[in-house]
Simulated scan of single mutants.
Amino acid sequence: MYKDSFATGELAADPGATLQAADGIRNSRKAALFSALVSLALLVAVAVQFDGMDFTHIVAMIPSSPLFWAVFAVWYLVGPVSEWIIYRRLWHIPVSGIGALMRKMVSNELLLGYLGEAQFYAWVRGRRQLSAAPFGAIKDVTILSALTGNVTTMAMLAVAWPLVFSGKIGLGMQSTFVSLGVVLVSSFVILLFRQKLFSLAGNELRFIAALHLVRIFAKVGLGALLWYLVLPDVSVELWLVLSTLRMLVSRLPLVPNKDVVFAGIAVVLLGHHVSVAALLAMMGGLVLVFHLVVGAGFGVADLVESSSQR
Rank of each mutant, 00 (worst) to 15 (best):
L205I: 08
K219R: 12
V159S: 04
V230D: 07
M173A: 13
L238Y: 01
Q174K: 14
L240R: 07
G223P: 07
T176S: 13
T148R: 03
L180A: 15
M156N: 05
P232K: 09
K168S: 12
D140C: 03
F177T: 12
E204W: 07
Q174Y: 10
S186G: 06
L211Q: 11
F188A: 15
V236F: 10
G167Y: 08
S199P: 02
P162F: 01
I138S: 04
V164I: 15
V234Q: 08
V182P: 03
G181E: 11
L163T: 11
I190S: 03
G167L: 07
A160L: 13
A160D: 07
R194D: 08
V164W: 00
L211V: 12
A210W: 02
L191I: 15
R215Y: 02
V220T: 11
W227Y: 12
N203M: 09
L192T: 12
G221C: 14
L157G: 00
D233S: 14
V214L: 15
R215H: 01
V230C: 10
L200A: 07
F207W: 11
V178P: 02
V220M: 14
L238F: 02
K168P: 02
Y228S: 05
F193L: 11
A224N: 06
K219D: 11
K196A: 11
L229F: 04
S175H: 08
L163V: 13
K139G: 07
G221F: 12
V183K: 06
A210V: 02
G167K: 09
V241M: 14
V230M: 12
L197P: 03
V183D: 09
F188S: 14
L240K: 00
I208Q: 03
Y228A: 00
S186Y: 07
S175G: 04
L180F: 12
S175Y: 11
A209F: 04
K168F: 06
V234W: 08
F193M: 09
A160E: 07
V141H: 06
N150C: 10
A210M: 12
Q195M: 10
P162S: 05
Q195A: 15
S199Q: 13
L229K: 06
R215T: 06
A210E: 01
V185W: 03
A224F: 00
E237L: 15
G170E: 01
L191S: 02
K168A: 14
L226K: 00
V230Q: 00
W239V: 02
L163Y: 01
L238T: 14
T148Y: 09
T142V: 12
L229D: 05
K219N: 14
V236I: 15
G170S: 02
R194K: 14
L240D: 08
V182R: 00
A201F: 02
D140F: 01
Q174P: 00
L229Y: 02
W239C: 05
L192M: 13
R206H: 09
G149K: 05
G181M: 03
F188W: 14
V182Q: 10
L144R: 08
A155C: 10
D140R: 05
T176D: 04
V141E: 06
W161F: 15
A210D: 02
G172M: 04
F217W: 15
V151K: 01
V178R: 02
M154W: 08
A224G: 04
G202N: 15
G149S: 09
Y228D: 09
A155T: 04
